[in-house]
């Protein structure tokens, strides 16, 4: 534009052409940054969804293996609850419990799988959510179903989706319950 002490600067015409291009560049960069952030969030949400679905099956199958009896309760066509009983009653006038006593119940409450342990008095004493509450995802349990096709085998199916990505996952498995003596609520 002007020369001062022999230095050459940018001329006004250069700025006029360069400015819109710079704005375009900045817009592209901002767009790219937002895309990277949203993709990272999406991947994180998918990871959490997958991990939580796995955790539901892992917790239920771990508890089922040691159960003395299993009870199924149907709430609607997609949501069921299961209770594992570890008590071993002896009918000699007293009820004698084993070391692992009480019951463990898995129920879906407002889209979250909740594990409730009955310490002998109430289920509400020990309540822990198995899914949900993660900062990186907003998961929702759509289906939790139990069935039993073979002797002492519990089939568990869980279907969940994430409200951020709208991705869903459905995983099923079975567990063998060697010590199970009673099954109630199954066809």
């Amino acid at each position: 534009m002007s020369s001062k002490n022999g230095q050459k600067g940018f001329i006004l015409a250069e700025f006029i052409i360069a400015l819109p291009l710079l704005i375009l560049l900045l817009y592209g960069l901002a767009n790219m940054t937002l895309k990277i952030i949203s993709l990272a969030r999406e991947q994180m949400a998918n990871y959490v969804l997958e991990t939580e679905a796995h955790e539901v099956l892992r917790r239920i199958t771990d508890d089922a293996r040691a159960a003395y009896s299993v009870q199924r309760l149907i709430h609607d066509k997609n949501l069921e609850e299961v209770t594992f009983v570890y008590d071993v009653p002896k009918y000699d006038g007293f009820v004698v419990f084993t070391d692992v006593r009480g019951r463990r119940r898995y129920v879906v409450d407002k889209g979250r799988v909740i594990s409730k342990r009955d310490g002998g008095f109430s289920y509400d004493i020990y309540t822990t959510p198995v899914t949900g509450g993660n900062f990186f995802a907003d998961t929702w349990v759509d289906k939790l179903k139990f069935s039993s096709r073979s002797e002492n085998v519990l089939h568990v199916a869980v279907e969940m989706h994430d409200n951020i990505t709208r991705q869903s996952v459905k995983i099923s498995t079975s567990v063998f319950m060697p010590g199970c003596k009673e099954k109630t609520g199954f066809e």
Binding site: H54, N152, V153, H155, F176
Partner: peptide, 14 residues
Amino acid sequence: IHLANEQIAESESR
């Protein structure tokens, strides 16, 4: 992995 576990559970039952 969970399918493999399902097959193993059914086999254990049998």
